[in-house]
Each structure stands twice: as structure tokens, then as C-alpha cells.
Computed example of a mutant assay.
Amino acid sequence: MEDILEVLRVEFDLNVKNGAWAKQLKRAREDWRRIQTAAVVRDCPEVALKVLVEEYGMPAPAGWACPETDVAKLTRS
């Protein structure tokens, strides 16, 4: 929805006088990205762990077996 609103404003020169829209749009996009990040971590924990270990230097948890990727969720449409 945020993208549609921004397209209306930018591409179709929708006259938006209230400057609060930009702050709300940014907050809504951030919330959406956080929700999507959590979903991807749940569906593909192996990649999440790899990023944390290789890119951020987090030690892999001792004695912890990383759950397998849920390929069905990653490939559903």
C-alpha cells in the first residue's frame, strides 16, 4: 500500500499538503521490513545464521542445531 501511495504522489504529482505523510510512510515501510525479516528468518534460519556468523562475527551457538529451511514456504506463491 505504501508503494501505491508514493507512486500516486511522485508519478502522478498528487498534491499532498500535509508533510506528515512522509513520516508515516517511512514508519510503515520500516514496520513492513521488520515483519518480512522475521518471516524470512523463520522460513530460512540457515541463511540467517550464516549472515550473523560470517558478516557480524557472532559465534554459532554451542550445542544448537539450526532448524532446516522450510523450502515449501520459500517457494509458495
Rank of each mutant, 00 (worst) to 15 (best):
residue 16 V to A: 05
residue 51 V to H: 00
residue 43 D to G: 00
residue 19 G to I: 12
residue 76 R to Y: 05
residue 39 A to R: 13
residue 22 A to W: 05
residue 7 V to N: 09
residue 46 E to Q: 11
residue 36 Q to I: 04
residue 40 V to P: 00
residue 55 E to I: 00
residue 55 E to V: 01
residue 8 L to R: 15
residue 42 R to P: 02
residue 2 E to G: 13
residue 20 A to D: 15
residue 23 K to P: 02
residue 10 V to H: 08
residue 77 S to Y: 10
residue 28 A to M: 08
residue 39 A to K: 11
residue 18 N to V: 06
residue 33 R to L: 13
residue 63 G to A: 04
residue 39 A to D: 12
residue 4 I to V: 15
residue 39 A to Y: 07
residue 17 K to A: 11
residue 68 E to R: 11
residue 64 W to D: 04
residue 72 A to M: 06
residue 31 D to H: 12
residue 32 W to L: 13
residue 25 L to H: 05
residue 35 I to K: 09
residue 45 P to M: 01
residue 71 V to H: 07
residue 20 A to T: 14
residue 4 I to Q: 15
residue 37 T to P: 02
residue 74 L to H: 00
residue 24 Q to P: 00
residue 48 A to S: 06
residue 19 G to H: 15
residue 49 L to F: 04
residue 43 D to K: 03
residue 15 N to W: 07
residue 11 E to C: 10
residue 65 A to Q: 13
residue 41 V to F: 02
residue 58 M to Y: 12
residue 67 P to W: 05
residue 4 I to M: 12
residue 5 L to P: 04
residue 31 D to F: 11
residue 15 N to Q: 11
residue 3 D to S: 09
residue 43 D to N: 03
residue 18 N to D: 15
residue 64 W to R: 03
residue 37 T to R: 15
residue 9 R to V: 09
residue 59 P to T: 05
residue 2 E to T: 14
residue 74 L to R: 02
residue 52 L to Q: 01
residue 42 R to S: 04
residue 49 L to R: 09
residue 34 R to A: 10
residue 30 E to C: 14
residue 4 I to L: 15
residue 50 K to R: 11
residue 58 M to A: 12
residue 38 A to H: 03
residue 59 P to N: 10
residue 47 V to Q: 10
residue 33 R to W: 11
residue 34 R to C: 09
residue 53 V to S: 02
residue 35 I to L: 11
residue 14 L to H: 08
residue 64 W to K: 04
residue 41 V to G: 00
residue 56 Y to H: 10
residue 54 E to K: 03
residue 5 L to I: 08
residue 53 V to F: 00
residue 67 P to Y: 05
residue 32 W to K: 13
residue 46 E to H: 03
residue 9 R to F: 02
residue 43 D to A: 10
residue 7 V to W: 08
residue 45 P to D: 01
residue 56 Y to C: 01
residue 64 W to A: 08
residue 47 V to R: 10
residue 24 Q to C: 07
residue 1 M to N: 10
residue 44 C to Q: 05
residue 75 T to D: 05
residue 61 P to A: 13
residue 10 V to I: 08
residue 38 A to G: 02
residue 7 V to T: 14
residue 52 L to R: 02
residue 21 W to R: 06
residue 36 Q to F: 03
residue 31 D to Q: 14
residue 61 P to F: 10
residue 45 P to H: 01
residue 54 E to M: 01
residue 31 D to N: 14
residue 31 D to W: 11
residue 6 E to V: 07
residue 35 I to Q: 13
residue 61 P to H: 09
residue 1 M to W: 08
residue 52 L to A: 08
residue 34 R to P: 01
residue 59 P to G: 04
residue 26 K to Q: 15
residue 47 V to A: 12
residue 10 V to E: 07
residue 20 A to M: 14
residue 5 L to Y: 13
residue 30 E to S: 13
residue 43 D to M: 05
residue 22 A to P: 03
residue 15 N to D: 15
residue 75 T to P: 00
residue 15 N to K: 12
residue 18 N to P: 03
residue 33 R to Q: 12
residue 26 K to P: 02
